[in-house]
Amino acid sequence: MIEFTIMAWILALLAAAAAIYAVETKDLISSAIAMGVASLVVSIMFLLLQAPDVAITEASIGAGITMAVFVYAIGKTGRWEE
């Protein structure tokens, strides 16, 4: 059980770092990609919490489709935040 705890803390710190980077950076493309990384890490946390259905959905939607939609929209509007 202890290895699950260690893994959960590593994943939690990764998700926290990705989320803070996504909010703080000026480059919107990096921000969207960091958001996707946070979603992917959270999907592994769902797997640790015994929710495989939710993990599949979050991995393909959070890390794939949401990020693609954001990147396309940023491509239409402008990459840098003043």
Partner: peptide, 14 residues
Amino acid sequence: WAMYFAVAVLLTAG
């Protein structure tokens, strides 16, 4: 508690 910490950080950052 790792999950709760991640939840708190994600909500606070957002």
